[in-house]
Amino acid sequence: MASGADTPRHAHLGDRAFAAGITLLGGAVLLVVGIIVVACARLSAPAFAKLGFFRFLTGSDWNPVEDSFGALPFIYGTLVTSAIAIVVAMPVAIGLALFLTEMSPSRVRRFVSFFVEILAAIPSVVFGLWGLMVLVPILRDVVEPALQHRLGFLPLFQGAPMGIGFLPAGIVLAIMILPTIASVTIEVLRTMPAALREGALALGATRWEAIGAVVLPYARRGIMGAVILGLARALGETMAVTMLIGNQPEIHGSLFAAGYSLPSVIANEFAEASGAVHTGALAGLALVLFGVTLMLSASARLLVRLSARRLVAA
């Protein structure tokens, strides 16, 4: 306790009550996680009982009418769109973070940080609307035909360019996770002692050489944490993906094809789910999503923290 003067013996009744009250409120955070797990597990129990956990995860048929539920197409779609998002967002976000912390004057930094904050504050559904009305026509009429023309021999770029599918969903996801990756990377780079960077510069390194030799090796773990946090956000992002991915529970190799993602199928079918098994299967997908994002966020936070602790030790 910050006061330090009060030992428990002499503590006022008010102090004890206050301490108990805030400890209870702090404990409520733990309770919330418990509630999430129990609620999802209870809802999904009928589905797991009927289908079996492993068969549910690996099955590729999703047919509510016949009570046949396999999660594979959704897992596939989630992974493909998230992979596109990471590949697109990571270099841009890290470049942006490096520019703001290492290269730009502070006035530019404040200006750009302000806009990155706004980007992070725009709701998912607005990105979905923008993707549907702006991005999809551009992809359908310009980008996808061009990709097909040049790289059509790759299985990634085959099939009719529809505009809707894995590609637009992945690109909008990239835009949405960019602020996450950038802001955590900036946070990590800021914790680096200036002396290290200045040492490299004093030895005659150019700015970029200082980044390559000192900054990036130093911040590597933290940046990896930032990217994993971005990945966790991409996996669970719902609205924009639901509006752009095409909502077909199928597995296709082409990025132009329509697919489905874990959050999207929950969003589309949960309200009208027929019976306990269908609801249960959807809640089971939520449980899988919760487990994966929980593990990713936890490991990312540990990485960021490790990166910061090394600084204290140095």
């Binding site: 702090g26 404990g27 955070v29 733990l30 919330v32 996680v33 509630i35 999430i36 609620a39 999802c40 209870r42 809802l43 946090l229 966790a232 956000r233 996996l235 669970g236 992002e237 719902t238 959050p263 929950i266 969003a267 949960f270 959807l282 809640a283 939520a286 999503l289 919760f290 994002t293 929980l294 990713l296 966020s297 936890a298 990312a300 936070r301």
Partner: peptide
């Protein structure tokens, strides 16, 4: 420390999962 870490991790839970929880509750 446990509560702080849990809060950080909880911030990464997809909102759709929270919707499922509210439905169940």
């Amino acid at each position: 420390h446990v509560v702080r870490f849990t809060a950080e991790v909880l911030a990464g839970v997809p909102s759709i999962v929270v919707g499922v929880v509210a439905y169940g509750l």
